[in-house]
């Protein structure tokens, strides 16, 4: 008999609803900088609890995000460095008595000169060896007395030599020589670093999703608590975006402020990590260098964007239920 559900609020007509998904940078900016207390903002009463919740949540999330970002950067650098070194060099180790070793080293150099994919090959001198070993044995160790293997260092060209072929040839002609293909031990490291980097990005994504969820919940609580206010505003002819704007501005500003605080604290904590360059291990590599310090400063901007979208979505959903 009747075409529309009776006694129902006027249903929202999809075509006329504002687009929710689009992030309007102008609106976002005005949400960030317009001072609180304008007539438009006073339409919605202040609520201490949700304000604190948004501030603290976005602060904590930003703090975590700084570390996830640092991890991502550090592992990225590590993976690049290892992958690069991996691609460029190999060593051949000759374990033989002193007098034989010299002749064998020359023979290895001859073979390498005929091997395609090897740009350069050189014997590592006795002095260099001593230097390499110094950190391990101390200066007083008579290196000459040790059965130290002779090392030949290869700089590779293009894709490098055919490792299997080269190994076969060395085995046949210089049995004391062993090809040390760095790939064997570096590859898992590169894989681990790459994987850690993806985990870092994933953590950043999860942090963003969690922040969006928390801010959504806080916005929904605030919208529910202010149902009466919204109805009055609707009745006197406020557009949905005008009402939503009052909530969006507030939540955007709080999220940005909280995230700025959290990000700055995180950056301070990372800057305060001890610096041990020469050790160059993974842990001390966890930090930002040069311009990459600017990246964590993007976190508050990102948080503002998340709060803007989450609150607007929640507000417009809620408003659709009010005729």
């Amino acid at each position: 008999m009747t075409r529309l559900a009776q006694g129902q609020p006027r249903p929202g007509r999809g075509a006329n609803l504002p687009k929710i998904g689009a992030l309007n940078p102008k609106a976002l900016w005005s949400g960030l900088v317009s001072g609180e207390g304008g007539a438009g903002d006073r339409m919605v009463p202040r609520t201490g609890a949700t304000a604190m919740l948004v501030l603290l949540t976005s602060g904590a999330m930003a703090f975590l995000a700084v570390f996830a970002l640092a991890l991502t950067f550090a592992t990225g650098r590590l993976a690049d460095r290892w992958a690069e070194g991996l691609a460029r060099t190999m060593t051949i180790r000759i374990t033989a008595p002193q007098d034989v070793a010299d002749a064998e080293a020359r023979r290895v150099l001859d073979i390498l000169a005929q091997t395609p994919g090897v740009a350069e090959a050189r014997t590592v001198s006795q002095e260099e060896m001593q230097e390499l070993l110094l950190p391990w044995f101390g200066p007083d160790m008579p290196v000459d007395a040790l059965p130290i293997p002779r090392l030949v260092e290869l700089t590779l060209d293009g894709g490098g030599p055919d490792v299997d072929n080269l190994e076969l040839r060395l085995e046949g002609e210089v049995p004391d020589a062993v090809l040390d293909d760095h790939t064997r031990w570096r590859e898992p490291l590169v894989t681990a670093a790459t994987r850690l980097r993806s985990l870092g990005w994933m953590s950043l994504g999860l942090i963003a999703v969690t922040a969006a969820g928390m801010i959504s919940l806080a916005a929904q609580a605030s919208l529910a608590a202010n149902g009466g206010v919204i109805r009055v505003l609707r009745l006197i002819g406020a557009r949905d975006l005008t009402i939503a704007g009052a909530f969006v501005r507030r939540f955007t500003r709080r999220a940005a402020l909280g995230a700025l605080g959290g990000a700055l604290l995180g950056m301070l904590a990372i800057a305060a990590l001890p610096d041990m360059d020469q050790a160059g291990t993974f842990l001390t590599g966890l930090g930002f260098t040069g311009a990459s310090w600017l990246w964590p400063l993007l976190i508050p901007v990102f948080a503002a964007g998340i709060a803007f979208l989450a609150t607007r979505r929640a507000a417009i959903r809620r408003l659709r239920e009010i005729p």
Partner: peptide, 9 residues
């Protein structure tokens, strides 16, 4: 639409 109703009010 909803904005039209608001303008009407």
């Amino acid at each position: 639409g909803r904005d039209g109703i608001a303008a009407l009010r």
